[in-house]
Amino acid sequence: MVSMKKKIIVNSIVGLIVIGIFGWLAISLNSGTKNTSQNAQKSTKTDDWQRIKRDKQITIGLDDTFVPMGFRDKNGKIIGFDVDLANAAFKSMGITVKWQPIDWSMKETELNTGNIDAIWNGYTKTAARAKQVAFSDTYHQATQVLVTLKKNNINQFSDMQGKVLGDQTASSGDETFNEHPKVLKQYVKDQKVIGYDTFDKAFTDLNAGRIDGLLIDEDYARYYVAHQANPKNYTVTVGGFAVDQTAVGFRKSDVKLRQAVNDTLTKFKKDGRMTQIEKKWFSN
């Protein structure tokens, strides 16, 4: 049996340690949230461009299931339109790209905690995202389209009246869908959309008849329809959604990095390298 005195001493020591840890947690959590809100304001304070140039390496986050923008071939190599473009762009600056696979719903957190230096993966400009990241110039445009089975005879958005719609969770298409309810949302069943984590699963459900339509970026639509057993079975409907501007996402503080990428993208557009890469990935 332990003496009463010893008990009191140990209990109070452990108690103090616990209180200390909680206090420290509360303080650092508090300052942590302050830092992120301050980051937006003191923009030029911490520019990582010097580090990137010195290390000759930049880490770019991508969802490696995003065909045809960035994905893995059968040998496990990361390939795609964005991958070619980013590799070429940074190569011309003497920087190698380290591709870091991330979970797409965590992309802004990854960027703002400094785990990655850029999001370059079919990343669409939206108002909500613009609050957290700084976008480069637009380098690619695409719109959200509706993919349906031909036999269901859905040829315009209003044909989706009372039908079930699917899309990708946390995608820009999902955001657009909710921001402009008049375009498509007012028609679909219960004004709700079924969210999938990847489009291949959504296509499986479309084929099985559990959803009637799939809201998807036209680049992905083309790829996935082309890879279905019978591409002729599908209707791709372009409706009233605005054209999405695809750009690269940076931390707001990385002004110089953004400028360098913008300059390179402009150069690529002028000398035809952009068209070359576009042809390679989108001409089917």
Binding site: F71, T198, D200
Partner: peptide, 23 residues
Amino acid sequence: VYVIGLGDILRAGNIAASRDVTL
């Protein structure tokens, strides 16, 4: 572990499934 961007076997399957559009 997929949520912190680690490539485990299920993610490898996910990548192959979305690339080749098959289950």
